[in-house]
Design a protein around this nucleic acid. Structure first.
Lengths: 199, 199
DNA sequence: TTGATACGAAACGCAACCGTTCCGTCTTGA
DNA sequence: TCAAGACGGAACGGTTGCGTTTCGTATCAA
C-alpha cells in the first residue's frame, strides 16, 4: 500500500517561496523583458535566497519556462448576452482588464520575440497565452453561428482571426499601449458588414 | 563660397566597412535577436576591426538604431491589376518575398519586444518596418474605393487594419513561419463579404 | 613626400551575471 | 530530542561582452 500522504523527510519546501519566485519572474519579464531578467533581480524582488531558486530551477531558462506555465490560463467564457455584439464587448472588456492586471499585454510582445525559432518555448507561448484567449472568442463565435448572426459557411477559425487579428495588429503597431486601439464594437460592425458595397 | 566637394583631411572612411557593419548587424538581429547580437559577432561577421565599428557608433544600442534606420523602407506600390483582389495578391507576393529576402519577417517580432516601452525605438520600428508596408496597402485600398469595390463610408485606415491584421496575427501565433498563414485571397474574400448573412 | 586619418588585429580593464558553495537558522517527521 | 532538509544571506570563481587603447599598415590631400 503506498501512502498518499507520503512525504520526504526534513522541512518541506515553502509554498510562499514558490509563489514569490514565479511572481517576481513574471513581473520582471513583463516589465523589462527576458534580457533584463537576472537571477539576482528575481532573488531581490522575491526576497528569497539564491540557493532557494536554484534548488527549484537549474537555470534562468528553466525558471522562465515555469513562470510562463504558471500563468493563469483559464479565462472564463462570459455569460451569454444574447447577441454577438454584447458577447464581444464583454469579452474585450474581460481580456483587456485581465491583461492589464497580470501584465499579459506587455508580456505577449516581449515573449513573442523570445520564442521565435524556439519550438519548445513557442509551444508554451501558444498554450498559455494565445490559446486560452482564442478559446473564448471561438466560444462566442459558435454562439453567434447558432443564432444565425454569422454565416454557417464561414470557418470558425477564420472568423476568430478576423475578429482578433486587427486588435493584436493595432496593439503591436501602437507599442503595447491601449490608447489608439479603437472601439471594439465599431470595428466588429465593419467586420460583420464586410467592405464591399451591398450587392 | 563653400566648396561642395569639401572633405576632411586624411583617409576617408570606407563605404564597404559601413555597409558590412550594418548588414552584419541586421543579419544577427534577425537571426538571434538583440540579446545575442554582440559587438564581437558583428566584428567577426563584417570582417572589420572593432575600432572601426566604435569609430562610427558609440555603443551597441546606437549601432542597432542605425541598422534599423538603414532598412530599405521604400516598397513600391504594385502595378494596378484592375481589381482589389489582383492588387492584394500581388502585394502579398511582394511583401512576403521581400520579407523573406531581408529577414524582415523574423526581424519584426524580434524588434517588437525590444521597442515596447521605449518610445524612441518604437518610432524607428514604426517608421521603417510598419509604415512602409502599410502605405502600400493603403494605396490599393484607395484604388479599390475609387473603383467602387470598397464602400466609400469605410475608413481607409480601418480597412487596412482589417486586411493586414489577421495576417500579422497569424504570423505571430504561428511563430514567424510562413506555413499556416492561409491563402491571402481567400481570406480577403471573407473580409470583403463580411461575416453576417446576406440581409 | 608629408601629415592626417582610416584601416584590421589584438590586448586590456571593467562590470555584470551565472551557477556554486558555504553559513547559521528554522521547520518538519521519527 | 534528533536527523534531514529547506530557509535567507553572503561570498566566490568563471565567463561574457562592452568600450578603450595600442600597434603597424594603407590611403587620402596638399
Amino acid at each position: 500500500m503506498s501512502d498518499v500522504e507520503t512525504r520526504p523527510p526534513g522541512r518541506p519546501r515553502s509554498a510562499e517561496a514558490d509563489e514569490a519566485i514565479l511572481q517576481a519572474a513574471l513581473e520582471l519579464l513583463a516589465e523589462d523583458g527576458y534580457r533584463a531578467l537576472t537571477m539576482e533581480r528575481v532573488r531581490e524582488r522575491s526576497g528569497v535566497g539564491k540557493a532557494t531558486i536554484y534548488r527549484r530551477y537549474g537555470s534562468k531558462e528553466e525558471l522562465v519556462r515555469a513562470a510562463i506555465a504558471h500563468l493563469n490560463s483559464d479565462i472564463p467564457l462570459p455569460d451569454d448576452t444574447g447577441s454577438l455584439q454584447g458577447d464581444f464587448a464583454a469579452t474585450a472588456q474581460n481580456v483587456l482588464a485581465g491583461a492589464a492586471r497580470t501584465g499579459a499585454l506587455s508580456l505577449m510582445p516581449r515573449l513573442l520575440s523570445e520564442v521565435v525559432g524556439e519550438p519548445e518555448m513557442h509551444a508554451l507561448f501558444h498554450e498559455h497565452l494565445v490559446e486560452p484567449r482564442r478559446r473564448v472568442v471561438r466560444g462566442i463565435v459558435e454562439r453567434a453561428k447558432a443564432r444565425g448572426e454569422i454565416r454557417a459557411d464561414v470557418d470558425t477559425e477564420v472568423a476568430v482571426d478576423l475578429m482578433v487579428g486587427p486588435f493584436i495588429y493595432r496593439l503591436i503597431i501602437c507599442g503595447g499601449h491601449e490608447e489608439g486601439l479603437g472601439d471594439p464594437v465599431e470595428l466588429l460592425g465593419t467586420v460583420m458588414a464586410g467592405l464591399s458595397p451591398r450587392a
